[in-house]
């Protein structure tokens, strides 16, 4: 599913060079539920960004579903994000002027090929799946943090991508809501077989992961498959 081979990421700001990832190599199989753990600045988010085509690789190669990402131009990376990857963000990143239904529908509209009725049916089904039936017409400001994150999860999954990347999905939630959210992600992973890769430094969240890859200073410190079932 995902193959990361000797990947480096260097940020250059003027004369300053910051190496965020150093020679990272790993493999993630389809259907895995993987946590990227580590302290702030360890490279978790950077690795997620590179896998999700949100950033460009400095050196090395990442292959996603057989497609080498380093060779893709901007258009190709855009198509990859659109068709093959769903994103869940720490602060939900919902569009405030859109209702829950419209936010989720955006992900389908950008893919295209579906009529308005089909989009609505799929979106409502997805929102029901994440427990938001009856709240479809509410705007983000009318929803709690946990509900917003559920909308975000629905948006990531509605187009049925093979891969969902989540950057600290529970960091802005209280522990109970956070646990509910990660449990929801886990159940969706089992139900749909979608690969989930998420970053976290929350032990409770890591406990749900079937594989925990720990990063430190841009390198893999450990790769623990202890929770794998």
């Amino acid at each position: 599913m995902i193959s990361v081979e000797k990947v480096c990421k260097v940020y250059e700001t003027g004369a300053q060079r910051v190496t965020a990832l150093r020679d990272i190599s790993l493999e993630i199989a389809a259907g895995e539920f993987v946590a990227l753990a580590g302290p702030s600045g360890s490279g978790k988010t950077t690795l997620l960004n590179l896998i999700g085509c949100l950033d460009s690789i400095t050196s090395g190669e990442i292959t996603l579903s057989g497609t080498p990402l380093a060779r893709l131009d901007a258009r190709g990376r855009n198509a990859m994000r659109r068709d093959r990857v769903g994103f869940i963000f720490q602060s939900y990143n919902l569009i405030p002027v859109l209702s829950a239904r419209e936010n989720v529908a955006l992900a389908l509209e950008v893919v295209g090929g579906l009529g308005a009725r089909d989009i609505k049916n799929r979106v409502d089904r997805m929102l029901a799946e994440v427990g938001l039936s009856g709240l479809e017409d509410r705007r983000p400001t009318e929803l709690s943090g946990g509900q917003q994150q559920r909308v975000s999860i629905a948006r990531a999954l509605v187009k049925e991508p093979p891969l969902v990347l989540a950057d600290e999905p529970t960091a802005n939630l209280d522990s109970r809501t956070g646990e509910e959210t990660i449990a929801l992600m886990e159940s969706l992973n089992r139900l749909h077989g979608t690969t989930f890769v998420f970053s976290t430094h929350d032990q409770m969240v890591m406990n749900h992961a079937r594989r925990v890859i720990r990063l430190r200073d841009g390198e893999i410190a450990s790769d623990d498959r202890g929770n794998a079932t």
């Binding site: 999700g52 949100l54 901007a74 258009r75 855009n78 198509a79 994000r81 659109r82 068709d83 994103f87 963000f89 990143n93 569009i95 405030p96 955006l106 992900a107 950008v110 893919v111 948006r155």
Partner: peptide
């Protein structure tokens, strides 16, 4: 800006 980033992450092209 963050909304623009989100739309880009969803696969919206620059022109769109």
């Amino acid at each position: 800006t963050k909304e623009i980033g989100t739309l880009r992450a969803l696969g919206f092209g620059r022109a769109r």
